[in-house]
Amino acid sequence: MEKPVIQLKGLTKCYGSLKAVDRLDLTIHRGEIFGLLGPNGAGKTTTILMMLGLTEPTSGSVTLCGHNATTHPLAVKKVVGYMPDNLGFYANMTALDNLLYIGRLNAIPEKELHVRARQLLEVVGLTADAAQKTSTFSRGMKQRLGLAEVLLKQPEVIILDEPTLGIDPAGVRAFLTLIRQLSREQGLTVLLSSHHLHQVQQVCDRVGIFVGGKMLAEGSMDTLARGLFGSAANGVRVTVTEPLFDEHAKELRRLPGVEEVTLDDRIVEVACSEEITPEIVRFFVGNGLDVRAVQPVRYGLDDIYQTYFETKQSHEKPAPATRKALFRKYE
């Protein structure tokens, strides 16, 4: 098996008595897009800083592309492009100059640098603003310039901290599509941290749910869903023309494989351990009910996220806490 691109072993970071990151183990392979998901203050940024050698772990090790990030940060920084969540540029320099400066710090040959900088500005759609000073840039424009800068050094790994913060929805879609395209075409490994579930869901191959410095779960969306909802991972929502009654629900529950039935006027949701949609439809038709629509129910990241938080809360805090409390800022 190929060597992993990112490998964290027992990574721990303490600030005083607070454990920001607690014995984190993580392995990411080449070409993967990994989403680090968690609420504010979960330790995402701290983990990323440790990966780049910008802060020292209390214990444990970080290996990126075979280099130890704590002892050899320079070797790591050569192959890793990092976009911080609160990125700024030298305000009195133009967008192009900012790019060129970063290129020079990376010792890219001057001729190649100019060509590539222009090319990247076009990719992120900033060609018209290349000669503008970055002090006039909006947040979204800065974000795009940040992506251009990350790509300028042609990294093997891209680490994006909250990359979609402050971009409009159309921009987010374009941004994520671009990242996915890059990852697929050039075999880039991408690690992105976010608390925007839907965006992560769109692009990530694997996600890790990270709360309170611990990785609660890790895997592809399907694996996570199956792990969480167990046998009830499949579901069907059926809409019929007539209102339904409890007898229908009772009869439905008798079908083999049906775990749970929820009735709501003309809509019924059936959670089942196997794929039995045809049986369900046949049941309705057999009872003389006209089926208007049949939809499979998939558990999204939202549900996964919420369930993990709830389980974590019920483990750690016996007192009922509102979900809102999770999203308060720890920082």
């Binding site: 609160n86 990125l87 030298y90």
Partner: peptide, 14 residues
């Protein structure tokens, strides 16, 4: 404060 520090230090410079 301008957010340039972490960007610069993420480049391969000492």
């Amino acid at each position: 404060n301008n957010g340039t520090l972490s960007r610069i230090l993420a480049q391969p410079v000492y």
